[in-house]
Design a protein around this nucleic acid. Structure first.
Length: 322
DNA sequence: GTTCTAGAAC
DNA sequence: GTTCTAGAAC
């Protein structure tokens, strides 16, 4: 059982909602951010035995943690994600506490039941940057709700999930750059390759294993080549492993950056990342990686240089007839 | 990350 | 004239 003590100002109250709910969908972002910055923290006390965590930090039995707006509460082996948000309270009543609603039956049905045996809850050491409370940052909307945080939302959406287990979730890339393009994401909040340490090695090996399984179950696995790897400097927050077929036959592949991010050393093989972690305890990205995105368009199959994206796409048809 | 569009390239 | 890219805006 989770006891939630939620604090809010007289005009607002905190609520915990399942992460796929968007209570602010009717409000413009600036207004939402303004409200979040004005509200107080929520407090939750862990009473039971099932592993519960806030932003991947496990709450021990009897312990108490403060939750901030946007933080995620994961109940029972990270099966049920909830996010703390704040909402206008028309009644002005803020005296009571509110329990998170039980997940509905269909929500339960949608989820696989992972084995609790051997499920070690990982300690999360990464700290999210503190949001400076100034008007400029509020206007610029640079944290919660920013486009770069989109994967965090997508990975929680059951409609997007094509596989999940106790450690990772797989979603289809929203803008696939090839016939098959998946992303493997850890449930644990890891912002980027930069924060990876030796203790993440097993997790990354598991991500690799799941990526291999995705390829194996693909109906065209025998005729298509796949690569699994990470972008050196990804645009989207939350570590994600690309699993992508090498046809690059997709209307979403539109520019030089797209092409070079998958066909130059900007794309770092999963095995190389794991090896770096095992030998150095961290992942180093070569300096000047961003310059790789500006390289001339070169066919990854035969090395032929093409001058434009349409010419490249036409050339790719010779390697991958539809 | 995507979308939009000015202006470069043809 | 059209096609395409690159950078700003989101």
């Amino acid at each position: 059982m989770i006891k939630c003590l939620l604090a809010g100002s007289s005009a607002r109250r905190a609520i915990i909602v399942p992460s796929d709910c968007h209570i602010y969908s009717q409000l413009c972002w600036v207004e939402v951010q303004r409200r979040l910055l004005k509200t107080k923290n929520a407090r939750g006390t862990k009473l039971g035995l099932n592993p519960t965590s806030v932003d991947s930090v496990v709450i021990g039995k009897g312990n108490e943690v403060k939750m901030k707006p946007g933080q995620q509460l994961l109940i029972v082996n990270q099966l049920f994600p909830y996010t703390v948000q704040y909402k206008e309270d028309p009644s002005g009543n803020h005296s009571g506490s509110k329990r998170p609603r039980e997940p509905s039956e269909d929500r339960m049905m949608d989820r696989e039941v992972p084995s609790t045996k051997g499920t070690k809850a990982a300690k999360q050491t990464e700290k999210e940057p503190v949001q400076p409370k100034n008007e400029e940052t509020t206007r610029n909307n640079e944290s919660f709700g920013h486009w770069s945080q989109g994967l965090k939302t997508s990975m929680q959406d059951p409609k997007m999930q094509v596989y999940k287990d106790e450690k990772v979730v797989v979603i289809k890339d929203k803008y696939p750059k090839a016939r098959y393009h998946w992303l493997v994401l850890p449930w644990q909040s890891i912002s980027s390759l930069r924060v990876l340490r030796e203790e993440h090695t097993d997790l990354l090996k598991h991500m690799q294993k799941v990526a291999d399984q995705m390829v194996q179950q693909c109906p065209h696995a025998s005729s298509l080549r796949f690569r699994t790897g990470y972008h050196a400097i990804p645009s989207m927050s939350h570590v994600h492993l690309h699993v992508i077929s090498q046809d690059f036959d997709s209307p979403c592949l539109k520019n030089k950056k797209h092409w070079n991010s998958f066909t130059t050393d900007y794309f770092i093989e999963s095995h190389d990342v794991i090896q770096m972690l095992e030998t150095n305890g961290r992942v180093t990205v070569k300096e000047g990686a961003s310059e790789l995105l500006k390289l001339p368009l070169r066919c990854h199959m035969c090395g032929k240089e093409l001058t434009t994206i349409p010419a490249l796409k036409e050339h790719l048809k010779s390697h991958f007839p539809s």
